[in-house]
Design a protein around this nucleic acid. Structure first.
Length: 157
DNA sequence: TTGTGTTTTACGACCTC
DNA sequence: GAGGTCGTAAAACACAA
């Protein structure tokens, strides 16, 4: 396809050349024209090859940091998913508990309304009923108080 | 030895300053 | 226009079968 390309032999740099390039790259990943020609002289290669090496080295650097970022994001996602699963379980448990409380209230109210016709002192009965009604709620609120902030709350930090 | 996967080198196209 | 990134071809290399 490309006769020009096939004519240009790809020559690998020696370990010493690579060491010099790496040292310079760690100092500054960008290549100003002065440093390019200076490095080319030191290495005994065309300036174009130095520029190409820097381009490829920057690309490799970027890929590596992208991989690291990807791993970090994946870990965060796993944490969030497991936290979410725990919250779902908690929601189910609380819903169940709420249903039970509502059932208790219903049975209590129905049994009370069937027997209230027989008694004369309404004031006494009402004050007693109000007090008894609060009991299931109180226990419910007590239980709900156990679930404060959890360890997963700083997941987005 | 050779088939195959990975890394390195080199370049064209396009973008930005 | 010089120098950057991005995508990709192809050479060089590593290595199992």
């Amino acid at each position: 396809m490309d006769s020009f390309r096939s004519q240009t032999r790809k020559k690998r740099l020696t370990p010493n050349q690579l060491m010099l390039l790496e040292t310079n790259f760690n100092f500054d990943s960008k290549l100003d024209p002065g440093r390019k020609s200076q490095l080319a002289l030191q290495l005994g290669v065309p300036p174009r090859q130095v520029a190409t090496w820097y381009q490829n080295r920057r690309a490799r650097d970027k890929n590596q940091s992208l991989e690291i970022d990807h791993k970090i994001l994946q870990l965060r996602l796993e944490n969030i998913l497991s936290h979410n699963a725990k919250l779902q379980e908690e929601v189910a448990r609380l819903k169940d508990k709420l249903n039970k409380v509502q059932e208790m209230l219903q049975t209590f109210n129905s049994s009370f309304s069937s027997s209230s016709d027989e008694v004369g002192s309404t004031n006494l009965i009402h004050s007693s009923k109000n007090h008894l009604d609060m009991e299931p709620y109180a226990s419910f609120i007590r239980d709900a108080g156990q679930f404060g902030p959890t360890e997963g709350d700083d997941l987005f930090a």
